[in-house]
Design a protein around this nucleic acid. Structure first.
Lengths: 242, 242
DNA sequence: CGCTGCATTGATGAGTGTCAAAATTGGTGG
DNA sequence: CCACCAATTTTGACACTCATCAATGCAGCG
């Protein structure tokens, strides 16, 4: 069931910087196996010191952080190509949990070998840091959204971000993409209540900008959305993957 | 005016993992100089592709992100030991600006040599990634705060975080530390209005938990603060520095 | 000495949260 | 194929936190 890295599905998508055959061989030595999980399966737990790290090969999930009183914040959405477990690998403890939302296929690595990564193939260490910087950048943008944007702006922003990411991965056809998330996920991502998120999504639908129902997101006018969200529509840079 | 890395002030603080003499020599080759800036001086601009990277040697600052309509979000506070310019170095573009709030001394590196970092001294590349993971972790926590905590909880949380960080760096005497920030900085960090932040700080003062005035923060009951903020008071891990 | 930035306080109202319930969907088993 | 149940979405009414507006005080400074 485990495919050789040579046939890694990520290496074929043009959202990613392609790996050289040598790099592929190197990664192959790293790979311990593949993991296939059902929707809503926990992958890594906040506070855990997991021995395994992952790269999402297909499917979608969420990163979420739980507070002492049971509230949660959705930190980010997980797409194919995302590395999962950076904090466990480096800090020895995850700052958030990761949970699948659709069925997912994950590439599994051994945490204990992360260091050999840096030592023997520094470009790959560099790539990992690149991903960390990208994530940091995104979290800063999210923070600005939750802290400064209104509900309407926030939801518009979220729809754009999800859509753009999906588009870069070939998950969009005719301005439509599958979304396995619930409205509660988005609400917790934007720091809004479920009810208000629902009503805000309704507004976007009324204005014929974006329609999300039946696990399907349709974007009708992304420029108008971007206007509302006060954001640019820059294409995503090619990213490395681990 | 430029001190040799051998005398780096950071290497003497026990908040940090100490560098070996060889590492110090290596870093010395890297170092281009030192920069001393006055309060409110911009250090790196959002969107810029700066040729220089920094490590804060002393003083404090902020990371901030500007939106199209002029609002801003304070992403994080900058303390000695913080690396500045990761995103410029790796992504080629800063996602936020960095500005001094007190007088600051900065260690200056050449961005173009960042890669040799990873190649010739992979442990140092590893350390840089460690810092990136730590920052990512903190941003996730901030996001949870802005998204989920109430104003009182948020402000209590911020005071704790700043105080803990200051304490680990020896900036606290008798539960008192200097804070060069304005209330507007904190308000923009927590996604609150200036007025409400002021009133919330007043509440903490009334309850005799924390007093911040005249650029001085005094923490009277950190356990009670932690209770309000729904957070633990774990000691900070020893961190590397670049 | 007036100017500017920052802190402080009170009054008012908008944007969201909370509560409650109905509608819809999807899954499960008889 | 239908009945039932759980999860999710949707809608309306109401409450409240927090933003906004406005004015004052205060300190630093040219």
């Amino acid at each position: 069931m485990t495919t050789h890295c040579r046939y890694c599905p990520l290496n074929r998508k043009d959202a990613f910087k392609h790996l050289s055959p040598e790099d592929i061989e190197f990664m192959q030595k790293f790979k311990v196996g593949e993991l296939s999980v059902e929707p809503n399966t926990p992958i890594l737990m906040q506070g855990s010191n997991a021995p395994q790290l992952f790269t999402a090969l297909s499917g979608m999930g969420i990163r979420e952080r739980h507070l002492q009183n049971g509230q949660r914040q959705v930190i980010n959405f997980v797409f194919p190509g995302d590395f999962i477990g950076l904090q466990a690998g480096l800090l020895g403890e995850m700052g958030h949990s990761v949970e699948a939302r659709s069925q997912m296929r994950l590439c599994v690595f051994n945490r204990s070998e992360l260091w050999s990564f840096f030592r023997s193939h520094p470009e790959r260490g560099f790539d990992l840091t690149w991903l960390a910087a990208m994530e940091e950048n995104f979290l800063g943008e999210s923070l600005s959204t939750v802290g400064q944007r209104t509900a309407l702006q926030s939801v518009a922003w979220a729809m754009i971000k999800i859509f753009q990411r999906g588009k870069s991965l070939g998950m969009v056809q005719n301005n439509v993409m599958e979304l396995p998330f619930t409205q509660r996920d988005v609400a917790d991502a934007m720091g809004l209540s479920l009810v208000h998120t629902n009503k805000t999504l309704g507004k976007l639908k009324d204005r014929q900008l974006a329609t999300w129902s039946d696990k399907t997101l349709q974007i009708n006018d992304i420029e108008a959305l971007a206007e509302i969200a006060m954001t640019d529509l820059d294409p995503l840079p090619k990213r490395p993957f681990i």
